[in-house]
């Protein structure tokens, strides 16, 4: 029989309720709900989909549609800090390829893979809107701009 009860903490449910209160429909809070849950659990698991669907009164497939549509939701486990290296045109023109290569080498992973210690997963990202600081990458929520390959260690050291 299916597991009953929610995996969401009371604190998350309260945050979701606060967000839902801003809109005429509860559904409008779905991205926020998924974001809060992902911050807690690291990714959007079946349990997260079920819990978010229940708290907002949606069907699971509706929640799953949203979770799979947006890049920032991970429907499989990822590292503690997703590293998204912008590879789009402005960064490409300023050496994003070299940054990606250096990063993968330093972390010992290929694009899309997670480091053995579970800290980082490396992604090639579409434009992150910081082209004035190209090449750049986002580690978690933080932007790091004007990157140089030999400074990556310093940046990564800030994420334990």
């Amino acid at each position: 029989m299916e597991q009953t009860g929610t995996i969401l903490t009371e604190a998350i449910i309260q945050k979701i309720e606060a967000e839902a209160g801003k809109y005429p429909t509860r559904r409008a809070a779905v991205k926020s709900a998924l974001r809060y849950a992902q911050a807690e659990f690291g990714w959007i698991s079946e349990g997260v989909v079920k819990a978010v669907a229940e708290v907002l009164g949606l069907e699971r497939i509706e929640v799953f549609e949203v979770a799979t549509f947006y890049d920032m939701f991970y429907t499989r486990p990822v590292g503690k800090f997703p590293v998204r290296v912008c590879t789009n045109v402005s960064c490409l023109l300023r050496g994003a390829d070299g940054i990606m290569e250096a990063l993968c080498q330093r972390l010992g992973v290929e694009e899309g893979e997670t480091t053995a210690d579970g800290r980082f997963t490396v992604f090639a990202a579409e434009c992150l809107g910081a082209c004035g600081g190209a090449p750049m990458m986002a580690v978690g929520d933080d932007y790091h701009e004007d990157l140089k390959a030999d400074e990556l260690d310093n940046v990564l050291a800030g994420y334990q």
């Binding site: 989909v49 069907e59 497939i61 509706e62 549609e65 549509f69």
Partner: peptide
């Protein structure tokens, strides 16, 4: 009955049921 959905986007858009 919301059983089928269109998940993913672009070329990966897939008609499927949840799990």
């Amino acid at each position: 009955t919301m059983e089928l959905g269109a998940t993913g986007r672009g070329e990966d858009m897939t008609i499927e049921t949840y799990l």
